[in-house]
Design a protein around this nucleic acid. Sequence first.
DNA 1: AAAGCCAAAAATCTCGAGAAAAAACGTTGA
DNA 2: TCAACGTTTTTTCTCGAGATTTTTGGCTTT
Lengths: 247, 247
Amino acid sequence: MDQLITGDFQVNGDAYEPKTLVDGAYRQLRRDIIEGRHAPGAKLRVEHLKDEYEVGAGTLREALALLVSDSLVVAQGQRGFRVAPISLADLEDITRTRVMLESEALRQSIAHGDEAWEGNLVSAFHLLTRAEEKLAGDLDGSVNEWEERNRVFHETLIGACGSRWIRHFLAILYRQSERYRRISVLNRPVPQDVHEEHEQIFKAAIARDADEACRLLSGHIWRAFHTVSAVPEFAQESASRKVANGR
Amino acid sequence: MDQLITGDFQVNGDAYEPKTLVDGAYRQLRRDIIEGRHAPGAKLRVEHLKDEYEVGAGTLREALALLVSDSLVVAQGQRGFRVAPISLADLEDITRTRVMLESEALRQSIAHGDEAWEGNLVSAFHLLTRAEEKLAGDLDGSVNEWEERNRVFHETLIGACGSRWIRHFLAILYRQSERYRRISVLNRPVPQDVHEEHEQIFKAAIARDADEACRLLSGHIWRAFHTVSAVPEFAQESASRKVANGR
DNA sequence: AAAGCCAAAAATCTCGAGAAAAAACGTTGA
DNA sequence: TCAACGTTTTTTCTCGAGATTTTTGGCTTT
């Protein structure tokens, strides 16, 4: 199957070389939004951004249009583009939907996964473990590496799920979650419990214990939600939700 | 809340006035793809389409980029755009995913729906019934009206579901399903059984019988799948799937 | 006759400038 | 002092033309 330029996850670890400027701007912009360099709700002025990303105005507009797909950018007719806003209520919705889809996907993956899948999973878990060790060692640049390997681990877990659509939706939801997680890790580094959770999920998956794996995975995802909701910025958000409702 | 130009379903029945040329081209193009005027897998040449839709090349490109969101168009780097291909396997995936999401959504909707929701549902069912009567009367232009009201009915059913994300994903899946259904109805008009199914679902929903409503709705959606799979074009497709795999 | 290669043609991708709309600002009047 | 209005400024939206890349077609060679 052809490699789609706007496809979901990059399964192989190779560095992705953008084939077109639009694609390059799209990836760069997506990353900058997920990692919070463009704040939620912020206006995305084409005039400024075209200089920052070194492309023409039309090119940047097209990249922004692609980002509407992932619900990372919203377009308001005749009033330009904005970074999609965030809220605790939204994260709760994302989390609940993700738990439902990811449970189903994991169940299918465990049912249908072959030995190649097991191999990929062992590999992904190992790399994630190494990254978590580095993270505990407090190396500064290792956060991005951990994020990347965490993503690959979760992606591999459901990799043998036969449903492309579920995987597609999960890719979207994962990116959304990542935005929130990036905010929470700014305040507090990744807790050490997370490694143990990953290990338990990993073992249950290899043991083909679907019920246990889903139970653990659900707890894992919900725990991330609670970690974010404990962050002060969001505590105040849920208080001012009524205000935000107006308009 | 602001009206997003690339939002999901249009809830109110008012005619939507596109605020920008990009938005207009996007809607028109989306409709033309769903209704099969652009065949699945067909190449979408910007040079031709810009004349057909009477917009500039850049504008049309942006509209196409928006369509990638709905997975109705795929972009192949440096090789232009194509209408997303279809296959029976894809429809099966769509159907299975849709059943899962729509069951959950309907359950939530029945649990949380207030009287306003009931009112909307009664109204949507009534309009759908009228459209089905016209359809039985064999009026030619009434197919589009039926499609529209069928969409509104299904949308209203899950309208009280609290999860925006589930509704968003269902909107995407519904559009995908519609492409397939449009093909099957070309061969055989909507069966009269469908009205009875709608009525049963409607009654179960009003009676707040979630289990029964979900059971009926699942059967309803799966029946649509089987109707399509019986169409000759798809029977041969599933036979030639191996060929299609090769690039 | 089939495979490989080179040149012509088509299509894509990209950019900057002009038209239209929205936002910002200062002015005027009650 | 406040509100409403008109002008200025900024930003968005749109278009057509030029540079790259892909594809097509024909030619040569084995």
